[in-house]
Amino acid sequence: MIETSLQSFVEGRGQSEAARLLGVTAPAIHKALAANRDIRVVELPDGSFSAGELRPFPSQRKSKAA
């Protein structure tokens, strides 16, 4: 299995193709990149792709201002 960052995955394929391969929309890819999320893409043995986000545990939610 080959693992890469979402940024590298998109640079090699473009946002539309990356979105299609991951089963999401191109705007979702754009939003994840703009938010600088730590998403890793893994190429599976069958040639498909899977993505997951690395986050601290426990996750700290941002509180909304009242």
Score class of each variant (00 low, 15 high):
51 A>R: 04
25 T>V: 09
33 L>V: 05
30 H>G: 13
54 L>N: 14
49 F>S: 11
61 R>H: 11
26 A>C: 12
36 N>W: 12
37 R>V: 01
66 A>S: 03
35 A>M: 13
12 G>W: 05
42 V>S: 15
29 I>F: 04
60 Q>A: 09
37 R>W: 04
9 F>N: 00
9 F>H: 04
4 T>S: 07
14 G>Q: 15
53 E>H: 01
11 E>I: 15
27 P>Y: 02
6 L>A: 01
41 V>G: 02
54 L>A: 06
1 M>L: 09
3 E>M: 03
6 L>R: 01
27 P>I: 05
64 K>D: 08
54 L>E: 08
6 L>F: 05
49 F>N: 03
18 A>H: 00
44 L>E: 11
50 S>C: 03
16 S>C: 07
18 A>R: 00
27 P>H: 03
23 G>L: 02
60 Q>M: 14
16 S>A: 08
32 A>D: 09
37 R>G: 06
28 A>F: 00
58 P>I: 07
37 R>C: 04
35 A>K: 14
37 R>D: 08
14 G>F: 05
23 G>M: 06
46 D>A: 05
33 L>R: 13
35 A>H: 10
5 S>L: 01
32 A>S: 13
55 R>L: 15
17 E>V: 04
48 S>V: 14
64 K>Q: 05
60 Q>T: 06
8 S>M: 01
61 R>T: 11
42 V>W: 02
61 R>D: 11
6 L>E: 03
50 S>I: 00
41 V>R: 09
12 G>S: 11
46 D>N: 14
28 A>N: 02
3 E>F: 00
54 L>F: 13
38 D>T: 09
23 G>R: 04
47 G>Q: 02
47 G>R: 14
16 S>W: 02
54 L>K: 08
15 Q>R: 14
23 G>Y: 09
45 P>D: 05
36 N>G: 09
65 A>Q: 10
23 G>V: 13
1 M>V: 13
8 S>H: 11
61 R>M: 10
38 D>Y: 09
31 K>S: 06
12 G>E: 08
34 A>Q: 08
8 S>N: 15
7 Q>G: 01
4 T>D: 07
50 S>A: 11
56 P>T: 05
15 Q>S: 10
36 N>D: 15
61 R>Y: 12
41 V>N: 11
62 K>Q: 07
38 D>C: 12
51 A>Q: 09
62 K>S: 14
30 H>Q: 09
25 T>N: 06
26 A>M: 10
5 S>G: 10
11 E>L: 01
33 L>W: 08
24 V>G: 03
23 G>K: 10
58 P>H: 01
47 G>V: 05
35 A>P: 13
63 S>K: 14
12 G>H: 07
62 K>V: 04
28 A>R: 10
59 S>I: 02
52 G>C: 08
35 A>Q: 15
61 R>Q: 14
59 S>L: 02
42 V>H: 12
9 F>V: 06
33 L>F: 15
24 V>W: 03
59 S>V: 01
25 T>D: 00
57 F>I: 05
56 P>D: 00
29 I>H: 10
12 G>D: 06
60 Q>I: 12
36 N>Y: 06
32 A>K: 10
7 Q>T: 14
13 R>V: 03
60 Q>L: 13
47 G>W: 00
41 V>K: 12
55 R>N: 00
10 V>Y: 03
65 A>I: 12
28 A>W: 02
45 P>A: 04
10 V>L: 09
23 G>S: 03
